[in-house]
Design a protein around this nucleic acid. Structure first.
Lengths: 191, 191
DNA sequence: GCTTAAGTATACCGGTTAGTGAATTTACAT
DNA sequence: ATGTAAATTCACTAACCGGTATACTTAAGC
């Protein structure tokens, strides 16, 4: 083996994710990714066959990371259903308040590629969102919510809607409105 | 004057909208738009200074059209709050069921340009969504809903979320779930 | 110290893109 | 019929993009 081997691959994946999340897929070039990783374009192509496959690998990696992060986050939330919802949307508001926030990388990329149903990135993003929704449903169930997975889906709808509308309007009070609605939905669903 | 004059401009705007909505902004070329309008690229640039300004003009036009359409749609809905919500989400499901559906053109384009806060398209899209939300609020108010505009915002969040998740999953039952949630939110808000 | 995988440097290819220039042709209004 | 606005034709630029080729250098393991 020579030099760093596997770590180079990780550096590429990390740099590519930052760029893709920030500016989407088409408007990020391979030269740019190479430059951000301080690596030659040739090295990029030694690790990934094409730009599309790089994107797929990036999403796969981020799926694992985000899922792990969400599970840790969920384990911290052990209070009432209302507290869980408040925590979820508070985190959303904080996240959306970052200077150059551009929404969920997954959603953003899927919407950019919405006319390419066969793109590998879409299957990964789909699985990702499904896993998050399911995990959130488990969380609500553990907190004693009736019809937990149905409520989880509804709250997830509110959360995705808030992301969209905050992006369009730049108005992060949508997170608070979504939180209020979510708590209204939970009312009368405590077991 | 010569030939068709203003009508050419309208043809360009219509063709460009179809392409932008279908495939986004970056991946549609000016040559393609010209070809779809059966017009020369030179003519395109006689009517619009740049691709960005063409996009802005397209959104401006579609804003007027969509707003008018939504107002007609709203006038047809004169029943109970539940009936209004059902109508809204039934229309959403039908819309999303179209073969090559790719979400709301406005949302799609804003998300693609999420990292360009100064882009003219964003201001137009923002105004568009705000007008729709306000009009929907008026509709609920007329139907006797308490806190009508707050409820309208919450239901709008559900609707935007449904669009996002239907795009990601290709599963149009999200519209039904959103409708159920919306009706739950309205429960106890009838005046 | 040699081997060998990993990375560098750099030039290149074919294709596409937004946008321009300039001369020409079309069609409508008077 | 004639002026003129509108549209055509088509060649062209300058930049960018994904991806490849070749020859060279580096560093780690044995």
């Amino acid at each position: 083996m020579a030099r760093s081997a596997e770590s180079t691959r990780q550096r590429i994946l990390a740099a590519a994710y930052v760029l893709f999340r920030q500016r989407g897929y088409s408007r990020v070039s391979m030269d740019e990714i190479a430059s951000a990783t301080t690596v030659t374009k040739r090295t990029l192509y030694n690790h990934f066959q094409s730009k599309d496959q790089l994107l797929a690998a990036v999403l796969e990696t981020q799926n694992e990371l985000a899922l792990a992060a969400f599970k840790t986050f969920g384990d911290q939330l052990t209070g009432s259903p209302s507290a869980i919802v408040d925590g979820l949307f508070r985190d959303l508001a904080v996240w959306a308040d970052k200077p150059r926030w551009a929404g969920s990388g997954f959603t953003r990329l899927v919407i950019e590629l919405a006319d390419l149903p066969g793109h590998p990135a879409r299957a990964i993003a789909r699985r990702h969102k499904a896993q998050l929704e399911t995990h959130f449903g488990d969380l609500l169930k553990r907190a004693g919510v009736r019809d937990a997975h149905r409520r989880a889906r509804e709250i997830w709808l509110l959360s995705e809607g808030a992301i969209s509308l905050m992006l369009v309007h730049g108005d992060r009070t949508y997170a608070a409105a979504a939180a209020e609605a979510a708590k209204r939905l939970l009312r009368g669903s405590s077991r």
